[in-house]
Computed example of a mutant assay.
Amino acid sequence: MTGLRYAAFTTDPTTGNPAGVVLDASGMTDVEMQRIAAEIGYSETAFAVPAGDRRFAVRYFSPLAEVAFCGHATIAAAVALAERDGPGDLLFDTKAGEVPVRTASRETVIASLTSVPTRSRPATDEEVERTLAALHWTRADLDPAWPAHVSFAGNEHLVLTTATRDRLAALDYDFEPLQQLMLERGWTTLQLVWPENEDVVHARDPFPVGGVVEDPATGAAAAAYGGYLRALGKVTAPRRLLIVQGEDMGRRSDLTVDIDPADARVTVTGAATLIPS
């Protein structure tokens, strides 16, 4: 069986984050799913198994290994299902927990995933120093107003805020040392961010644990970032922001993030479009 190919968090198949989608993986073994994910070659492929009325058991594989949750592949799979079955509510049972997804048809199909409950903790000095060494950055490259955190929304992500947009743009890191640190700590990506203003944040996400230098859109990290803001007390009323990711790779992705101070879950919304074969 071959998978579909979608670009998530965009309406342009030449931008966004490509994801593989297998709409019915019933009976497939782990070995088969891993093989297909490697053949597709994208950072993640989603494998859906029907489990009831608009409910699916969904697993995610990078070219190297299974991951508990993947936001952009969730958006891609939800849009593919909506295009096949019609828009409406879906429920994905993932290894990270239940993820409700709402799909709606506007000019294109839009999907909104609601994460598992988020959490966030301060990063240790050792975690920050080892990460900075792998990135070839120093403490002076970080904005001291934004503390480093390890944030979770199904996977853990180290959040670092740069002092300037130029620092974020100049990303050239040591792959193997960063990969090793992330494997030790159980981090899926780094969430490197620069807030343009209160409503727009620019992000880059190294993903060496998945065998990928950088992810052009990371829905799970976007949800975790919402949890980070909530943990810092930056969300005193329902808040929406746009995370722009992938632009330094030439694959701009737009991730809309909704955070509610009364709910530990975070909603991430985006479009997806089929990549022509």
Rank of each mutant, 00 (worst) to 15 (best):
G250P: 12
L168K: 06
Y60E: 03
T138G: 10
A7F: 10
V21N: 09
T45E: 14
Q179T: 02
L178R: 10
A153D: 05
I110V: 15
G52T: 06
A271N: 13
E196D: 13
L255S: 11
V58K: 10
G3N: 02
H136K: 15
A96H: 04
A231D: 11
A153C: 04
R130G: 07
V116T: 03
A123Y: 08
A57Q: 10
R251Q: 13
R84E: 00
V266P: 13
I110H: 15
I75M: 10
P261S: 04
V257T: 08
L23H: 07
N155M: 14
G226V: 02
G233Q: 05
A169E: 09
V21H: 05
D199N: 12
L113D: 05
L183M: 10
G270H: 07
F175I: 03
P208T: 01
A148M: 05
S115M: 03
D141F: 01
P208F: 01
R185E: 08
V21F: 00
V193L: 09
T164P: 12
D143W: 00
A145C: 03
Y6R: 04
T273E: 13
Q34K: 08
D172V: 00
V128K: 04
V266K: 02
D125N: 14
A111S: 10
S120Y: 09
V31Y: 00
